[in-house]
C-alpha cells in the first residue's frame, strides 16, 4: 500500500488570522486504510479535511506553507474538478450537501455524474448500484428536501460514492443526527471500509471510531500530538488531559487498572471489553 496523502511540514493560516489553524504538520496517509481524526474543538480537524480536499487555500484563501500532496502532486496544482474525482467529501450539515436544484434522490445522485459528462447510458446503472449499496433505492423518487437528516446524509454519501473516488474525507457526518440516523450513516462508512477505500473520518463519537478505524490522528491547537495505532492511542488515558475524549471502554479499563484489577490490555471496543474484563472477572472469581 502506497502513500496517497502526504502533509509535508504544513502550516496554514486562514485569512486575517495570526494563529495558524495547522502548525508544522507532517504525516502520511496510506491507501486503503481507515483513519480516525480526533481532538478538542478548534484543534484543526476541519482544517485538516479542507487541506486534504484542496479547499484550503483555493476556496478559503489564506496562507499555506509546506505541501499537501495527493498521489504525489500538490493539491494546488490540481485543476477544477480533478480532486472531486479522486477525493469524496462529506461534512456535518446534510441539508447543505444537497445541490438544491434536483427534485428526486435519483437526480441528486446523478448530478455529479452529469457534471463530469459521464455518458448517458452509464448514468442510470451507476446510480442504481450506489442506491442499492447505500440502501436508499426505495427513496429514489423522493424529493431530497423532504427527507430526514439521516436520509439526507446517506444521500450525500451516495452522491459522492457515485463518482467512485478512492479517498473519502468525512467531517463529523453524524453530529446533527439522532441515534438512528447515526447508525444508518455508519453502515455506509462500514461498507467503505469493507471496500478498502482510504477513509479519513473526523468524529466526536470515539466509540464508533474505535470500531472502524485502523489508525488515529490526534490534533491539539493545530498540531499533531499523536499518530498511529488506534489501540495504543485510544487506550492512553493521558490524552484526556489534552481535551481528547476516549472510548468509554478505555476509560473503564483504566479505572479498573487503577483499582488494582489486572487486565491483559485496555479495551477500546465493546467486544474487547467483554473479552478482557470477562477474563479478569473469571480469574478473580477462580482465585
Amino acid at each position: 500500500m502506497g502513500t496517497v496523502i502526504e502533509f509535508a511540514n504544513v502550516t496554514y493560516n486562514y485569512p486575517l488570522t495570526k494563529r495558524p489553524a495547522i502548525k508544522n504538520l507532517s504525516l502520511k496517509i496510506e491507501e486503503g486504510k481507515f483513519y480516525g481524526v480526533i481532538g478538542a474543538n478548534g484543534s484543526g480537524k476541519t482544517t485538516l479535511c479542507a487541506l486534504i480536499r484542496g479547499f484550503a487555500p483555493s476556496f478559503y484563501q489564506g496562507k499555506l506553507e509546506g505541501k499537501v500532496l495527493i498521489d504525489g502532486k500538490p493539491t494546488t496544482e490540481y485543476g477544477p474538478g480533478e480532486l472531486a474525482l479522486r477525493i469524496g467529501y462529506a461534512f456535518q450539515n446534510p441539508f447543505n450537501q444537497i445541490s438544491g436544484v434536483k427534485d428526486t434522490v435519483f437526480e441528486e445522485i446523478a448530478f455529479g455524474l452529469e457534471n463530469f459528462g459521464v455518458p448517458f447510458e452509464e448514468i442510470e446503472d451507476r446510480v442504481v448500484d450506489v442506491m442499492r449499496l447505500t440502501k436508499i433505492e426505495q427513496l429514489a423518487m423522493k424529493n431530497p428536501f423532504e427527507m430526514s437528516g439521516g436520509q439526507q446524509q446517506r444521500l450525500a454519501l451516495a452522491s459522492v460514492l457515485a463518482l467512485n473516488p478512492g479517498i473519502f474525507v468525512i467531517d463529523e457526518p453524524t453530529s446533527q443526527l439522532d441515534p438512528e440516523g447515526t447508525e444508518s450513516v455508519f453502515e455506509i462508512i462500514e461498507m467503505l471500509k469493507a471496500q478498502k477505500r482510504t477513509v479519513v473520518l473526523v468524529e466526536h463519537k470515539v466509540d464508533l471510531l474505535a470500531e472502524f478505524a485502523d489508525e488515529m490522528i490526534v490534533l491539539k491547537g493545530g498540531e499533531l500530538i499523536r499518530f498511529g495505532d488506534k489501540q495504543e492511542i485510544l487506550s492512553d488515558i493521558s490524552l484526556e488531559e489534552k481535551g481528547v475524549q476516549l472510548p468509554q471502554y478505555a476509560v473503564l479499563g483504566n479505572k479498573l487498572i487503577n483499582k488494582g484489577i489486572a487486565l491483559d490490555y485496555i479495551p477500546i471496543t465493546e467486544k474487547q471489553a467483554v473479552e478482557v474484563i470477562g477474563k479478569a472477572v473469571r480469574q478473580g472469581g477462580a482465585s
Binding site: 479547499f55 477544477p80 474525482l85 461534512f91 447543505n96 438544491g100 448530478f111 455529479g112 448514468i123 452522491s159
Partner: peptide
C-alpha cells in the same frame, strides 16, 4: 453560511469541471 457550504458541495460534485455536461432530464 449555508451558501458557503453549498459551494463546497457543488465543487465536490464537479460543478466547475470544464467539460460538456450530460443531462438526463
Amino acid at each position: 453560511t449555508n451558501t458557503e457550504e453549498r459551494v463546497l458541495t457543488l465543487e465536490s460534485k464537479g460543478f466547475d469541471t470544464p467539460c460538456k455536461k450530460t443531462r438526463i432530464f
